[in-house]
Every structure is written in C-alpha cells, then in structure tokens.
Design a protein around this nucleic acid. Structure first.
Lengths: 238, 238
DNA sequence: TCGGCGATCTGTGTATACACTGGTGCCGTG
DNA sequence: CACGGCACCAGTGTATACACAGATCGCCGA
C-alpha cells in the first residue's frame, strides 16, 4: 500500500476514535516520524483530512483536528436527514429486493443479542453494509459521495453516545424497517422509516448530553491551550 | 500566494470552463511545466481536484478530468434540490432582512438588462453573492460546505446551457423571489421559491439537450482516444 | 515595569533527486 | 502469423535538502 494511504488511514482512525482529540496539532515532522515515513506522503494525507473536514488549518498553529461535539450533532443530523431521506427514496426505486430482504433479516437477527448487551462492533459493520447498499442502489454517485463525506463526522459522534443496549436494539429494529421498506421498493416508506430512525438516534444522542460516558476530551474548552504534544494513546476506545 | 494554491485555481478554472475537457490527462510533469512550478505543489493541487470530484484517478492513465454532461444534470439537481431547500429553510430562520432585501432589489434591477441581452457575468456574480449569503445565514457549516462542493459541478453545467436572455431574466426574477422570501424570514416560502427556481433551471437545461450551443467538447465519446496533449486554449468561453 | 522591536528558530512550502511500478513495444518462438 | 515473454521507458511515489515565513523569546528603551 502507498505510504500516503497508510498515513491517511492511520491518522483518520486516530481522529475518529479520539486518539488525536479535537485541537490536537498535526505537525508534519512529528507525525511523519511517528508513522515512519517522510513528510511528502504525510502532507498528502493531511490534505485529504482537511478536505474531509476532519482537520483544518489554524493560523499560527498549523493544521489541527477539528472540533466535534454534541453541539454539532443537530447541524449534522439536519443535513443527514435530507441526504439519507433522498437516498432512501431513490434507492427504493431501484432496490434489489433480495439484497435488502437479506439485510433486513440480519438486522432482525441482531436485535436480541444487542438487547442482551452484545458487542455492537458487528452491528456497526452491518449498518455500514446497509449504508453501502443504499449508496449503491440510489444510483446517484454525487449523493453517495456526499453521504460518505458526512458519515465520517457522524461516526465521530459515536464517542458521545452511551452504549445503551435498549437503544442499540431499537436502532437495529429501525434499520430492519428501513431495509424492509427498501426491499418492498416503497420510496415513501423508505424515507419515512429513515427519518424516524434519525429522529430517534438524535434524541438518544442528545438525551445523554450531560451524562456522557467516558470523558470525550475536554468539553469545557474548545481550543486547548498549549503546545503539548499528543503522543499518548487513550485507553478509551469506541 | 502559495504555488499549490495558484496551481489549484488555475487547473480548477481550466476544468470548469473546458480548457481541460473531460478525459484530459493531468500529467504531473506536463502540468507542472505548463504552470511553471514543481511537481510537489502540483500534486497537492491535483489532490484537491480529486477530492472535489473534478478529477479522478484512472487506472493506467494517471489522473483525468471527470466527465460531466447533461446526463448528470438530473442527478446533480436531485441532490441540489434537497441541499438548497434545507439551506433556504434554515437561512430564512436566521436571515438578516436588510441584507436579503438589498439582494432582492439588485436581482430585480438586473432582470431587464438581462432580457435585453446584457452580459450575464455580472449576474452570475450576483447569484454567487446570494449563495454565499445563504451559506452564511443557514448557520450550518456542514451544509454550507456540501453546497460549495456541489456548486462546482453545477457551474460546469453552464457550458451546456444556451445563453437565452428570456431564461436569464426569468432566473433573475426567481432569485429575487427567493431573496424576498429570505428577507421576509419565511422558511416555507424560501424553500418553495428555491425548489421552483431549480425545477425551471433544470427544465431549461434539459430542453436544450440536442441543440446545445457552442460545442461542449465531444458529446459522443466519454473517453477520448489518444494521448494528445491539451495545450491549446479553446476560444470558447462561458 | 511595560511595551516595542529584533534575532532566532521551529515548522511549513517548494524544489529536486531517486526508486519503483505499470505500460508499451520489440523480439523470439511456436 | 499469432502469441508470449522480456526489456525498456515514461510517469508516479517517496525521500531529502533548501528557502522562507511566522511565532517566540529576549533585550533595549521609555
């Protein structure tokens, strides 16, 4: 694999799961040494992160990791609702019934284990599969591209969501409903189930605003003070 | 200005106005020599173009300019409708009445000159001003970012639209209506006038599918055959 | 003591040299 | 004559060296 690709994926993952918290400076020398490559591919990786909105140039401090918190959740979900709504509509028009029927079954099968406290990792992978299938079925590469660009930020929000088995199980049921609607090739139903799911997801996210779980990096100050380097890997994992 | 920024703007403009037509290969050596800089900043520029969707890696041929044509217009407007609709709604909720009132006046003032065949360049600048004001007023940086990313592609479509004074005048009137709705801080009206405008714009664009004006680069073959370099500047200008 | 100013210095921006991959064309062989 | 393999080569990917700008810190003067 190309070095720039490795750097990109590594930094991207570190940002998403918080090892590189909002405000952390992405020094070229520091990061290139850490990842064991030269500045050239690293700069390319940083450029991609900036284009994605995961990092941004900050005058005087170089490129820093962008802030994301529950405060942005409303804005992100506002955008997400129209994009996923449109995608669901269009996907329902072209959907492969068998494909989405299968996904619906798998979501239903996942519900009970989640309610019992199962590891949601596998479930997240399943939702990614559904997302990818919708991206494909909506037959609109531009829409799919924008959705992919948005989902990165949504994934970052996961860190702020308490892992509530009841909510995860409900979420799986909602996903099953979406998949069923797509399998039935019913655009209106697909859009409605999607909107419903997003409303619930946002409500759940915001309901935990105060009781957020495992210390998501300094909720008090947006910009962190100094120039302390950020080598340490948090033990906090999604 | 940074060399990479110059390269980016130059290439971007060349792609938008067709000097670099779809399928044209963006060779690093060739372009860096043409623009008088080294490959390093040029690579950065190309990276940004790829992220924007104006270019894409093509196996074996390097990076090439992406295709855009009336065939994609429907997909682009599908996406545009939901994004601009949401932006109009949200902008109407926060709008500065004086700002949008002024824009509305200026659109109205532009209508008659356009009907008389005036140069639309100034009018395009005015629409960009409205777009920027909406981006700002919608108070959602994520939405604004996605809109900006989409507009690049829409601008490319201009080359396919015949410059019809009647349509331009009507378009100006529609923009005035949008601005008025925003000044009135009426979300529903703002969304409706926006949707109306987009429907008309798309209809006009597609009505000229066969009689498109000034030869927009090879409508017959998506991928162009050879390795002919693309130094010559078209005299065709938007 | 505080404010302004200049030197230093860290870190980015650019150029260039090198490595390597993938494609192309030629040659040999069946 | 066609097909497979090999060598060459163009062009990208990466490393490194250099130039330069902005920030920081210390010093000087008021």
């Amino acid at each position: 694999m190309r070095a720039s690709e490795r750097a990109y994926r590594s930094l991207r993952q570190d940002i998403i799961d918080g090892h590189l918290p909002p405000g952390a400076v992405l020094g070229e020398v520091e990061q290139s040494e850490r990842l064991g490559l030269s500045r050239t591919p690293l700069r390319e990786a940083i450029g991609r992160l900036v284009a994605e909105g995961l990092a941004e140039p900050s005058t005087g401090r170089g490129v820093v990791v962008t802030k994301v918190s529950l405060a942005e959740a409303g804005l992100l979900f506002d955008l997400r609702t129209v994009l996923e709504g449109l995608a669901a509509r269009r996907a329902a028009e072209h959907a492969d019934a068998a494909l989405f029927g299968d996904l619906a079954d798998r979501f239903e099968a996942a519900t009970e284990p989640l309610r019992g406290g199962a590891d949601p990792t596998e479930y997240y992978a399943l939702t990614e599969e559904l997302d990818a299938a919708v991206d494909d079925a909506c037959a609109n590469p531009y829409l799919a591209q924008h959705l992919r660009g948005l989902r990165v930020h949504l994934t970052r929000l996961r860190r702020f969501s308490r892992k509530d088995p009841a909510r995860l199980a409900a979420s799986a049921t909602e996903h099953a409903a979406i998949a069923h609607a797509l399998a039935a090739r019913n655009p209106e139903l697909a859009a409605a189930t999607t909107t419903m799911h997003l409303q619930h997801a946002l409500a759940h996210l915001q309901s935990h605003q105060e009781t957020a779980g495992t210390a998501p990096t300094d909720p008090r100050s947006g910009t962190r003070p100094g120039h302390e380097t950020q080598h340490d890997h948090d033990t906090v994992t999604t």
